[in-house]
Design a binder for these strands. Structure first.
Length: 485
RNA sequence: GGUCCCAUCGUCUAGCCCGGUCUAGGACAUCGCCUUUUCACGGCGGUAACAGGGGUUCGAAUCCCCUUGGGACUACCA
């Protein structure tokens, strides 16, 4: 059992600029599982400082997707703890301003009036010199502080730039180990834009500090950013949290997973009726391993054992094939009544709802081993038990081409026309089978495949004695007479 | 370009921190066999990997260095 530590506070901090991404879901899941495992708190914070891209509806959509996955936060915009609220960065402007002022007072940051053109020129110049783009404007010089303050007081707009210390930083990352950022790796960077809005690397630190975040589990794409954040923690005299930079999810071309790789938003999987448990299961496995090396589990089974030590350091390829298998495993794992309930929530299942509870249960049960996805179940049931017509596949043609098959069709056609009950029994079916075997001298593969083809119009499926007694006689009659033609 | 990260079967991974028990284990996919008087389901088995080169050591997948390859970051985006 993972050591309990109620003081642990983790967070997931998405930007509401689109649907919840599969990679974001994985990060959220890891944070959630860690909080559960140590008995800590999972915070949801909305990073909406990019006004142009952030949309309120995306926030709602992402929260909905998280809820669908069963990843529940303890604190967030909808569940505020007064001690830490608000949880949207767009509502925390005063806080960021206050700390930015402090940094300026201490000369750890400064006002910068450079125009875009000046910045652009500076960038070009440093590129020519072969180095990294670096700020070397005049406002860096403290002798201009007095002038800067005067212009700010006069209401002039300007950015606030952080004075990056010229020294090396070392991060002790839970996944990557010791990471050293060399001296002079980054130049002075903007922490507050000239429109007054703070920038990610700055507000992220202020928030994590104020929200008393103890562990930051996030994607490796933030690894190099961390040096800037370490600098700000230092300037604010705050202790940085424990970082764990998990590897990225990649597509088949080994590039960071993005929209062009296909289905990368969680809502797509919801719409396709994937089981949320299965998605979580698969996502967990992409970068974390179960100590017992099992592959199939529910989130709840991880609450006791999830451990930050078992992250893998290299990126993982997102593979729909294995997700498909995991989804199938979770379907098999579900108790049939629960599965039936889920199936009946699917669209276009009215035909199923008309059936008796016993029939529905038996039908769903028979479908279980054959499907990987929920929405395959009604299709399977319809094709197997209810559909009168069928597709003339090559495999079916082959069976019908055997010399034995027409005899079976003839015989069953004759027998079934005498039936007056709604369903035939297993005993009746066995009687027909016996007759074909003894009187027509057909056995083995020609017998079973012949009868299956005659009665179902399919070349494969569950055992005949299981499905035929569940198929209405009028359906069977239609199928047989179609073949008789 | 610069900085940082990563490197075990086709894919996800165990093992690596604390060298020997690893002729490298599991899972997906794939192939074969068995079972089912049929097909499927299922069961069993096969193919398949320590990127390369140097060290260190009696001994290296495991520790160190180099090379190669891949990735991320490099904004008044997050």
């Amino acid at each position: 059992m993972t050591t309990q530590n109620p003081a642990v506070r983790v967070r997931f901090a998405p930007s509401p600029t689109g649907y919840l991404h599969i990679g974001g879901a994985r990060t959220a899941l890891y944070n959630y599982l860690y909080a559960k495992a140590v008995g800590g708190t999972f915070v949801l914070r909305i990073e909406d400082t990019d006004l142009e891209r952030s949309k309120a509806e995306y926030e709602a959509l992402q929260i909905e997707d998280l809820k669908w996955l069963g990843i529940h936060h303890n604190e967030g915009p909808d569940k505020p703890n007064p001690k830490y609220a608000p949880y949207r960065q767009s509502e925390r402007g005063e806080i960021y301003t206050k700390y930015a002022q402090q940094l300026i007072e201490k000369n750890l940051a400064y006002y910068d009036f450079c125009t875009d053109e000046e910045l652009e020129e500076m960038k070009k110049r440093s590129e020519l010199e072969g180095g990294d783009p670096r700020y070397d404007g005049k406002w860096k010089n403290p002798e201009f502080n007095a002038e800067a303050k005067k212009r700010v007081a006069a209401g002039e707009k300007c950015a606030i730039r952080f004075r990056a210390p010229d020294k090396a930083y070392t991060l002790n990352d839970k996944v990557k180990g010791e990471v050293t950022y060399p001296e002079g790796m980054v130049g002075d960077f903007v922490i507050v834009r000239s429109n007054g809005l703070p920038v990610y690397n700055y507000c992220c630190v202020v928030d994590d500090m104020l929200m008393e975040i103890t562990h930051v589990i996030r994607g490796e794409d933030h690894l190099n950013n961390t040096v800037r954040q370490l600098m700000i923690y230092e300037a604010l005299s705050a202790k940085p949290p424990q970082f764990a930079h998990v590897s990225l999810l990649i597509g088949h071309d080994r590039q960071k997973l993005s929209k062009r790789h296909g289905a990368t938003s969680v809502n797509l999987y919801k719409n396709e009726h994937y089981l949320p448990e299965a998605l979580c299961n698969y996502l967990t496995l992409l970068g974390w391993s179960h100590p017992k090396e099992t592959d199939i589990f529910d989130k709840e089974e991880l609450f006791d054992i999830f451990d930050i030590e078992r992250f893998s350091a290299h990126s993982a390829m997102y593979d729909l094939e294995k997700l498909k298998w995991v989804n199938g495993q979770h379907i098999k794992k579900l108790a049939t009544p629960d599965l039936l309930k889920l199936v009946e929530e699917l669209p276009e299942t009215e035909f199923l709802k008309k059936q008796t509870p016993a029939w529905k249960t038996a039908a769903v049960e028979s479908a279980k081993p054959y499907v990987h996805f929920l929405n395959e179940i009604p299709v399977f049931i319809n094709n197997t038990f209810l559909k009168e017509s069928f597709e003339m596949t090559d495999a079916l043609k082959e069976i019908l081409g055997w010399e034995t098959t027409p005899k079976i069709v003839d015989y069953i056609h004759g027998e079934i026309s005498k039936v007056t009950t709604e369903y035939i029994t297993e005993v009746e079916l066995n009687g027909w089978m016996d007759h074909v075997k003894k009187e027509l001298a057909i056995k083995g593969k020609p017998l079973f495949q012949g009868v299956r083809a005659t009665l179902t119009g399919q070349d494969h499926g569950p055992e005949l004695k299981l499905i035929i007694p569940l198929t209405p006689v009028n359906v069977l009659k239609k199928r047989v007479s179609e073949l008789k033609k």
